[in-house]
Design a protein around this nucleic acid. Structure first.
Lengths: 234, 234
DNA sequence: ACCTGAACACCGTTCAAGT
DNA sequence: ACCTGAACACCGTTCAAGT
């Protein structure tokens, strides 16, 4: 369901035979390997091809240029991450806002720090003017899942749910990245993580209204369609 | 007084004659120009040299490699930004935490959004494993200035000032970057900015102690030496 | 359909020669 | 001291030829 990326970044062809599918997988795997071992800067299309066991020409049958490789890897990573967040949100429908915030921060923080080398490599793989569509798409997906979760909070309601969600996620995602890049010693990193949870909770407490007024809904509104589909840019 | 960067990223020589200083300035200027016009990806050492009116060889007398160019530009930018934040902090000593937070967010947000092209180009210029020392140094400077400011708050004291400051800055800086990269429409961007201020204030209200106990200090402690010089990594 | 790899244009970096 | 620019090694991308 992802919105289609700019044409110039899409793989050139989809595999029609089993052999081709295997080739594509090998190229993907090789890209990540080379990225981790040599760093994005020394990643060479030839090197990737060799590691994947194909020739450069083959690589260029699937990806129009090097950037498209990075783009594809980032896309996979963000899809995976979005799914994790969605699962975490779904698992906490009806919980307290404390549990929700704790779950959100933990999920995202752990995802980013469990494989620091991968995180770092991906942060660095972004060179040209392209990954912003990916970030936007990721943002929309996660916004929706999070808003749907907070709409079911047992101990609070929110008058301006979309903007509250957007602020919360912008803050959490941004803070995690910044903490990561600061290379904090583990003790400080843990402390910041805990304080971040406190901060989010303090914010939600400050902007919440009483729990979802039972006058309007039946037992509990199962789902809120939280897409703010009006005001976003193309 | 910036801590010295890794040797391999430093300019090779310092100019000893006026001619050389002019050359260095020209290279700097040209780097930024080419970065903005062609993007970091299409920035070529030859192109920079031509634009600066010198030969490639000259460029390589001052910078050991292309990365060092990017590094130097980032360093200048972050030095400038740190100074802005320090000024903003100094101007608010003794103010309320509301005013402090508002000042901090406004200063940083405006600095990042007043020249979006520059911000974007710099975010993208980071390709190799180097700019983290810059970010750390920037962080330490701004941490110190911010902690010194909050220590003088008229309406609050803080038991664990260093970690509170660290959390606040990590959050604000991260959120600004994330908001930037999401390409929000102006209305949402303004809303998030306002909510971010709310969030920081809610956090500080939650962790504050009563105003600085006048028993310990005279009229007001003029300055707090807030460097957390113990636990940071090399 | 899919793969190969020599060939081409271009870029980062060096260094012998200049002022 | 500082500058020049041809020369070299290497990389991204293509395309005629193969299975």
């Amino acid at each position: 369901m992802a919105s289609s990326p700019p044409a110039h970044l899409t793989p050139r062809k989809r595999p029609r035979q089993a052999r081709a599918a295997a080739t594509l997988d090998a190229i993907f795997e090789a890209t990540i390997q080379v990225m981790l071992v040599d760093g994005p800067h020394r990643l060479t299309t030839t090197r990737v091809a060799v590691r994947a066991g194909v020739s450069v020409g083959t690589l260029y049958q699937y990806f129009p240029h090097k950037q498209a490789l990075f783009y594809a890897v980032n896309e996979r990573y963000l899809d995976d991450l979005a799914e994790k967040v969605e699962r975490a949100c779904r698992a906490r429908h009806g919980a307290s806002i404390n549990e929700m915030v704790e779950g959100l921060v933990t999920t995202y923080w752990n995802a980013k720090t469990s494989r620091r080398d991968v995180t770092r490599a991906l942060y660095r793989s972004v060179v040209e003017l392209d990954n912003e569509p990916l970030i936007e798409a990721f943002g929309r997906r996660v916004d929706a899942a999070t808003a749907a979760m907070f709409a079911t909070a047992s101990d609070a309601g929110f008058a301006a749910l979309p903007i509250v969600t957007l602020t919360l996620l912008t803050t959490v995602f941004g803070a995690v990245r910044n903490a990561f890049e600061r290379n904090l010693p583990p003790s400080e990193e843990r402390a910041v993580r805990a304080q971040l949870v406190l901060m989010c909770i303090a914010y939600l407490e400050a902007v919440k209204t009483p729990p979802h007024s039972a006058a309007f809904s039946g037992p509990v509104p199962a789902k809120v369609h939280a897409s703010s589909g009006n005001s976003r840019r193309g």
